[in-house]
Nucleic acid binder design. Sequence first.
DNA 1: CAGCAGGGGGCGT
DNA 2: CGCCCCCTGCTGT
Length: 471
Amino acid sequence: MGDGGLLSLSWNNHKATFCHILSTLREKERYTDVTLACEGKFYPVHKLVLSTCSEYFESMFEHTPCKHPIIVLKDLKSDEVESLLSYMYAGVVNVAQNDLARLIKAAELLKVKGLAVPDEPPQEVENRKNSPPRSSRDDRSSPHPKRRRRDDSDGVAGEQHGTNASPPASPRTSPYHAASEFHQDNSRTHNEGHVSEHRTEKSIDRLEHDVRSDAKSTGDLNPDQHNPAKPCSPLQVMLEETLVKEEIMDHLPEDKDSLMGSGMDYGSMTSDGRLENSSSDGGTQEHQLLSAKYEQQSLAPSQTHHLPEAVVEALAGPSGMQGWLGGGGDMSGTFSGVDSYGGDSRHQDLRQPLPTQQPQAHQMALAMNSEKKYSMGRLAVVGGCPKSTVGNEQKPEGHVRPWTSHIKKFECTYCSYFTITSTNLMNHLRTHTGEKPFACVYCPYRSTQKGNLKTHMNKHHAEYMALRNSQ
DNA sequence: CAGCAGGGGGCGT
DNA sequence: CGCCCCCTGCTGT
């Protein structure tokens, strides 16, 4: 790798982490922008995920301007929905053999990529479903492979609720990936030796470590359990049913409350809790968009409110998911949410005229970065004067300018920084662009500011400076 | 201690 | 107004 060589930086655990974060976001109901309703249960999920995994949803959202539509899945069972969601979020779903045909049918109904295989009879698909063991290879690359053994889980094959919250147990790269693996499994259905082959060594180590620690806590777990085929039937049954159920129960009431409270019209609820869409005539088989009432007023604010939190919690890690999130179409709101992380409402104003030439994701990433810096205390941006405390401390009397909005002249297009001088802004911009135009002639040192280079020269190449001064 | 980054004065155009 | 230059505080090693 010589000078100028390209370095390929790869995030070893990226896919697994990605899936995990997705699942986490779903669990925490962060950024959810669509709610699936089925049998009286509500599943706040993400359009992005749904449309990624299903052209059906994709086109549905495409034609639905509503910010937070409620989609009533009428001809589906809630457990099917849960399974499908698990499949879409985690890339893997555990299903009892008996329920497989039902699930596949549901998947076909919703055109879920990788699961919907209309051309082939369910039987064949069943064979392919031996793949869950294989999918577990990615299990092990999960950041939190918290699988718990349910020795007698075979007996509860009919229960699939658990899949809903199993994502952390088995993040998958993507449904596409899953689909392709199904095909691979055709040729080697029983070969479980491949289970972990595709993982990177690092993720293996880390995950096995996680698994072991998990095993310690649960007592009977061993790493091999990531191979679901071992203890269970080819169609592995849920491992976390009770756990998951509890989580669901925790969430649903809130959902209902909030949904109802927001004036959402869900149609009528039958006595057994099933959701009946009043407008459903049964002719169209699956879902109807019920109403657009459930959107901005009640939901958007909380979303924006949650974002910074989630950025910290769910998107932990320096890289986070900025790029991914930036792909959303409604980033202005979320972006301002991030932006307000510093607690400075002023940012909202500054954000308005943000130039659009920057990809939003980029802006978001940079903004997050800069906010981080600010929160670290480099600039006291939080509240009141946006100017640096540096200036205040440095020249208490010098900071007499009223730092009001009409004074600021130069705004950074990447973050909320602003200054009264273009020079300062230019210097600042280099911190974003990475440009270091001032290079030391004696060493690889480069600087964003000439003065910094000079300082460097004085300290490290004093003789050069002396010579130069004498000339 | 070295480096980074922001503030601001001075000067030329 | 833009550029140059210097000063300064903060942070990481």
